[in-house]
Write a protein that binds this DNA or RNA. Structure first.
Lengths: 231, 231
DNA sequence: CTGTATCCGTGTTGATACTG
DNA sequence: CAGTATCAACACGGATACAG
């Protein structure tokens, strides 16, 4: 008789455990495997399809992505959904509890941004950049300004609402925004975090500004990077 | 001619990278390997020796502990120190930036504590328990109380200062504390998080209370666990 | 076209035994 | 006590083949 085949989910279930009541240890069991937390990051602004995830996680292979999605579905971090016809496509979406991991994701990023090894010139996904805005925004610098700002990155678009020194972001059309950046994530990052002047990026043809240009200039100063540790 | 030998640190240096400017991705490169963040957790209250780390990280093997300590030393998260004679022992201690990771560690723990898989009856190190107190303390429940509370776990002891609804903890002798718990981490956890009455734990001989007994009773109510998600 | 399963080479991880 | 050496098991990622 053939030995019972071990399915991937069974393998995941008996994965190594830290056997530790500490919540941090459990967090590492839940999302500590390679790629897991970056997948969650990509889902922070709404459900995504398999191929979108794969495209935004440069270097991940399809089988690993499948494994991670299975594992995190089993843990209750995300769910598979079938969009109603005529779309009828399958997407992966965070559960409400899955969305709650954003704070931890941001705190990890805030901490690591001070590393001597942090390199802001590397590629960046749209979701990373949006999350970095939510992490790095300085309430002091924003002051009492309110604004509605759109971001277009090829097929993806986001709408940000600035209020009370804070920024809320969701995937949405940019209609009605006072200001719209049309760019790619890396180029916008080079302006906001790399100090590149907007005019240079526009001149290089990698960024377009529509709407309130003065607001655009102010916006780029709202996200100070923390001082790096001596490295 | 012989090929150049690859040293461990060189190996670590060319470790797989996510190639992502996102701070969270960098954090995962820095402390995302198995055990790394738990080692940091053990160091949060001061430098520890190799053997103390190994003893408190149940299941880690010596070679892995060595690798992780090397890697995190290279990343600037911790340093090796030789204590002056007559101690003359070597300890590993977080750098100031390493200590800053505590916020992220706590947020991961806070998030995972809501998992259906969270099991508060598993073993726990003293550092985990102290960190969980710092994570879970409810300012509302503490109110305006101030107190000095000691914890003795065999050879380890900690001193906590309660003020402004918050708790600061350091390794120190418990002399002068208004209240001292003498126990082991799991037993104290069963009282604070498991609802076990202090009297039962004392009756079972796993916990001793010295000092302000009424304060001890109040203390056990200051750390509400978040509601679990339906699992 | 969108995923999912399987094979395979390689590198990482961990248990045990061992050394200064 | 503080690690190293060795070796087996597993995880990763790429390619490819398959399924809805």
């Amino acid at each position: 008789m053939k030995l019972k085949k071990v399915t991937p989910s069974e393998k995941a279930a008996r994965n190594r455990w830290y056997d530790d009541a500490c919540g941090t240890a459990l967090a590492l069991e839940l999302v500590g495997e390679r790629w897991s937390l970056l997948i969650v990051r990509e889902l922070l602004y709404g459900g995504r399809r398999f191929s979108e995830l794969k495209a935004n996680l440069s270097g991940i292979s399809a089988n690993i992505l499948t494994q991670r999605l299975e594992g995190m579905e089993a843990s209750g971090i995300l769910v598979r959904k079938k969009l109603p016809p005529p779309a009828s496509v399958q997407i992966y979406e965070l559960t409400p509890w899955g969305y709650e991991s954003e704070t931890a994701i941001r705190e990890l990023g805030r901490w690591a941004a001070r590393s001597p090894d942090h390199d802001t010139t590397l590629p960046l996904s749209a979701a990373s950049l949006m999350t970095s805005f939510r992490t790095m925004i300085s309430a002091e610098r924003v002051g009492d300004e309110t604004a509605s700002i759109g971001f277009v990155f090829g097929p993806e678009s986001f709408l940000a609402q600035i209020a009370n020194g804070w920024i809320e972001i969701r995937r949405a059309g940019v209609e009605g925004a006072e200001l719209v950046f049309d760019s790619d994530p890396m180029s916008l990052a080079s302006v906001v975090y790399g100090g590149r002047p907007i005019a240079d990026a526009e001149g290089a043809g990698v960024l377009t500004v529509r709407g309130d240009r003065a607001l655009a200039e102010r916006f780029t100063g709202w996200f100070p990077l923390p001082a790096k540790v001596e490295g």
